[in-house]
Design a protein around this nucleic acid. Structure first.
Length: 588
RNA sequence: GCGCCAGUAGCUCAGAUGGAUAGAGCGCCGGACUUCGAAUCCGUAGGUCGGGUGUUCGAGUCACCCCUGGCGUGCCA
């Protein structure tokens, strides 16, 4: 709720309370809802309070509505008119000055407009991507990256203290597998080169591991390994530790570079390996042993997750004595709490949803509220080229990588389309649309153009027409008489509400929808007011034109355009999209 | 079998936590530039919100039951 909405709400709340004090309403009075009507005819705000409390008042809703209205005290005169509509809705129209004051707020607060109040708690940890460093990032990871990063930005903007984190699974079987894959490829290279190192050695080339990594990048790493460490070093490395580490480190760098290019940053890269080395996993398991949720069966250690909302119990330590991935994850989450976070958000691929319940259970067993762990499941992306689906064979290793897409469609359209929809709905990503530079085709370009256009107007006013910017005054703002100018100003004042709600719901896509709407309204205004433009057109700039031009209106409109630019910029920043102040000319 | 998510216009999807006549983009069709910022804008058409029952002043939204699709249901990670 923004301040205008809050003030309006108070007037109605007070009026309702007066009804109650006079004994017109039985029982407790509910909080008065103030909503934004879909249709402009329904005023600036609407409330259904009369419908909600009609029963308690024992009167028809419309009659009650009138009684509430009669008890409104509005000394500041923020309300222009009130009417009862339909079955008993109260439609409220505010005085234009309220909105003009809003313009002042936007201009004064600038990039802070809409920002939530800073709060110390909850201290939020948001973990996302966390792809194994066993290969390049694919499209699915890309969506998770965009969603997690935008959510982190959104939460920060909304005032939360947020740390973003990548959990690096740089230990365990998959990493061993990776090392073995690289090792075999390296030996194959040596064989092909008829390397003397290999001939001297009696060892045969081992089979390529069945669930090994078959992508071309494995050979690249093998090649690199041979160059950096030398053939002998490689051949003599029979336990995979060194080679695995080399390969994982290499792939971690690759992943980090891809994410940087994608404008995704992490505050912390958290290593699973270090969790093993530091004894954290043992500690976490011991911690669990103190609870009643642990038991032994068939030589393994089990977690009684079935008592904490999961379908069945889960193994924590195998009969071999080796901890499972779940054990690492318990230790990891314990570590997050240990570092002072009181709210954890995990952004996971939808294929991990079977994992959510046991993780919540573990968190609970460790003594934290299960509500303090939130998991967002990001659905899959289908790639398309026009009508044609781009096939992605999972087994063959022939998947489309984040780098491929970055190269073909570019960073901003990619982020835009990954963020445009709710995280839990499937999306079709059309490469052809995304790579288009035409704003009428590509909504990602369209919203950037909206911002650039606003900036262009201001730049032109200052540089080309040498118009000196005027300070805000209510008299000046009253020059904004065009219906669209007021409507768009009202829409601008929604921004703080959009931010608050989007952050609360963990839904960055709401910011995109809002930005899309604001840009569209602005560009529509812009084209339709061609005969009454913000800036004096060349056709009038003749002779003594400066004396005849309506400067007050232009000054007011320039402030208004500036406010639009401010809000577009804030939206783009939250989404991690570039906010160019001018668009590159399209050549043909 | 069980569990989770989804099903809204030809297509892709919104729908602000239960509100008024369900919206947008794209596509289709029809319009607007001797350019101020047309790289844009305006308009028409298009719907039993998968189906049903219920909850209530009021349901795309909540509950229950079906149908369809995706995913999950490892001492894999």
């Amino acid at each position: 709720m923004n301040s205008i909405q809050k003030n309006t709400q108070r007037l109605f709340q007070d009026a309702l309370n007066r009804c109650s004090e006079e004994g017109l309403i039985k029982g407790t009075t509910p909080e008065v809802p103030i909503t934004l009507p879909k249709k402009p005819e329904h005023g600036d705000f609407a409330t259904s309070i009369a419908l909600m409390t009609a029963k308690k008042a024992g009167r028809p809703p419309r009659e009650l509505a009138q009684m509430i209205i009669d008890r409104i005290q509005d000394p500041e005169g923020i309300i222009d008119s009130i009417e009862i509509a339909g079955p008993g809705f109260i439609n409220i129209r505010l005085s234009d000055d309220v909105w003009y004051r809003g313009l002042e707020t936007i201009l004064r607060e600038g990039s802070d407009f809409g920002r939530g109040e800073k709060r110390a708690h909850p201290k939020i940890n948001i973990e996302f991507v966390s792809a194994n460093p066993t290969g390049p990032l694919h499209v699915g990871h890309g969506r998770g990256a965009a969603v997690g990063d935008a959510l982190a930005r959104l939460l920060r903007f909304a005032g939360y203290q947020v740390s973003s984190e990548y959990y690096l699974n740089d230990a365990g079987r998959q990493i061993w597998n990776l090392g073995q894959s690289v090792y075999v490829r390296a030996l194959e290279i040596l064989r092909e080169e008829n390397s003397p190192v290999l001939k001297k050695s009696p060892l045969d080339i081992p089979e390529f591991p069945e669930d090994g990594y078959r992508g071309d990048y494995v050979s690249d790493i093998a090649q690199d390994l041979l160059e950096k460490k030398g053939a002998e070093w490689v051949v003599e490395n029979t336990d995979m530790d060194n080679i695995s580490s080399f390969a994982a480190a290499r792939l971690t760098d690759t992943i980090r570079e891809s994410l940087e290019k994608f404008n995704v940053h992490f505050d912390v890269w958290f290593s699973e390996k270090k969790l093993h080395e530091s004894g954290s996993i043992k500690n976490a398991v011991n911690e669990l042993r103190k609870t009643s949720y642990i038991y032994e069966k068939d030589g393994a250690l089990w977690f009684k997750s079935s008592e904490l909302g999961d379908e069945k119990d889960r193994v924590v330590v195998r009969d071999s004595g080796e901890p499972t991935y779940f054990a690492s994850d318990i230790a990891y989450h314990a570590d997050k709490y240990g570092r002072g976070f009181d709210h954890l958000i995990n952004v996971w691929g939808a294929d991990h949803h079977g994992y959510v319940a046991r993780m919540k259970g573990a968190v609970q067993a460790l003594g934290h509220s299960p509500d303090s762990l939130e998991t967002l499941l990001v659905q899959f992306v289908t790639l398309k080229r026009g009508d044609e689906k781009v096939s992605m064979g999972k087994r063959s290793g022939q998947f489309v990588t984040v780098d491929d897409l970055l190269e073909e469609v570019g960073r901003d359209p990619m982020r835009y389309f990954f963020l445009e929809r709710r995280h839990d709905s499937h999306i079709d990503f059309d490469i052809e649309t995304a790579r288009s530079q035409d704003p009428t085709v590509n909504p990602a370009v369209y919203v950037q153009y909206g911002h650039a256009r606003a900036c262009s107007i201001i730049r032109k006013a200052e540089k080309e027409l040498v118009i000196k910017k005027q300070a805000f005054s209510i008299e000046l703002a009253r020059q904004l008489q065009h219906e669209d100018e007021l409507r768009i100003l009202r829409r601008m004042m929604d921004f703080p509400v959009i931010v608050e709600d989007a952050a609360e719901a963990r839904e960055p896509h709401r910011v995109i929808n809002y930005l899309q709407d604001l840009s569209r309204q602005f560009q529509s205004y812009y084209t339709r007011t061609k005969s009454d433009p913000v800036l004096p057109p060349p056709s009038v700039r003749k002779g003594d034109w400066r004396k005849n031009w309506d400067w007050e209106k232009t000054h007011a409109r320039l402030l208004w355009v500036e406010a639009i630019a401010i809000i577009c910029k804030s939206c783009l920043d939250i989404l991690g999209l570039a906010a160019s102040t001018r668009m590159a000319r399209l050549s043909e």
